[in-house]
């Protein structure tokens, strides 16, 4: 059974001579958090805005919960919830008014419980311009969730938020996923994408250059694992000491850092060397490449294939 809720097929979008999106295809399954990553100008916003019904595609097809966003905006508005990156609200509207206003246009009762849950209870009478950045983002999320949409589009949902609010918003996104909502998350925050996303697509110059789970994407990189070692007498800092499978090496503070293509032989040789030098191992850290490392590798590699 095909349970894709968002279907993007050969989607193209241009602005004059500038090709913003050049024939990308992907789908997002029900109950999935799908991260859309890419540097500025990669085509993320054009893709999101076309899926939200704000722009018409120049080619290909788009479907959101079975609805064509450009030809059936009335139907679309009740199945999607959008947390825009920009304010999207009048400066003088109060939290209470905003919830009543948007709920009324969706034909649902105002969800004051969401206002409370997102920590805006004491700000219900405050005007939008009086809210902090974090409070504005929380309000935007509350409004996006008020009509219980099946698809959520979140554009940089936690940018500029403090740690506690960020954790709370992440928990809410997970809850929405558990409840069956499908989430398309556009973000520059690699840690957030890696932590929350079931799958990720990386866009570069309008083309889709990588797609898969965060684990899949990081595994398909150059494969260098970072091994950081600190010893009591710094015997590893001796020039000319080499270990098997080490591609690059550097030093930072009191750590010697090795980038290994095969950590088994590398670590075994390092430990044997330390023992032979009668040195004492204080700390040894092994870090697989992060999504951020992989993202930088992809986006700085030049033209997509």
């Amino acid at each position: 059974m095909n349970n894709a809720v968002i279907v993007v097929k050969d989607f193209r979008k241009s602005y004059g001579d500038v090709v913003a999106v050049d024939g990308i295809s992907f789908d997002v399954k029900r109950g999935e958090i799908f991260g859309l990553l890419g540097p500025n100008g990669a085509g993320k916003t054009s893709t999101l805005e076309s899926l939200e019904g704000l722009r018409a595609p120049d080619g290909g097809s788009l479907r959101v919960a079975g609805v064509d966003p450009s030809s059936d905006p009335r139907k679309l508005r009740n199945v999607i919830g959008v947390q825009l990156q920009t304010s999207g609200l009048p400066e003088s509207i109060t939290v209470d008014e905003a919830m009543r206003f948007f709920s009324a246009y969706h034909g649902v009762d105002p969800r004051m419980d969401l206002v409370e849950r997102l920590g805006l209870e004491e700000k219900r009478s405050a005007q939008y311009h009086q809210l902090s950045t974090g409070q504005k983002r929380r309000l935007a999320l509350a409004l996006a969730l008020a009509h219980e949409p099946t698809v959520l589009f979140l554009d940089e949902p936690t940018a500029g938020l403090d740690v506690a609010t960020r954790v709370e918003l992440h928990n809410m996104m997970r809850e929405q996923r558990e409840a069956g909502a499908t989430i398309l998350l556009a973000t520059h925050d690699m840690a957030e994408a890696e932590e929350l996303s079931d799958r990720i697509a990386i866009l570069l110059r309008g083309k889709l250059v990588a797609m898969g789970s965060p684990m899949d994407i990081t595994a398909t990189g150059a494969g260098l694992t970072k091994v950081s070692v600190r010893t009591k007498t710094s015997s590893l800092a001796t020039p000319g000491v080499e270990f098997p499978a080490v591609g690059q090496r550097s030093a930072s503070d009191e750590y010697q850092i090795y980038f290994s293509t095969d950590i088994g032989p590398t670590i075994a040789a390092i430990i044997a060397y330390i023992e032979a030098q009668q040195d004492v191992l204080i700390d040894l850290r092994v870090e697989r490449p992060s999504l951020e490392d992989r993202f930088l590798e992809i986006t700085t590699a030049g033209e997509p294939k």
Partner: peptide, 12 residues
Amino acid sequence: SGIFRSYKINGI
């Protein structure tokens, strides 16, 4: 400031 975009998305 993008307020109309938000209105459009929400069916206003």
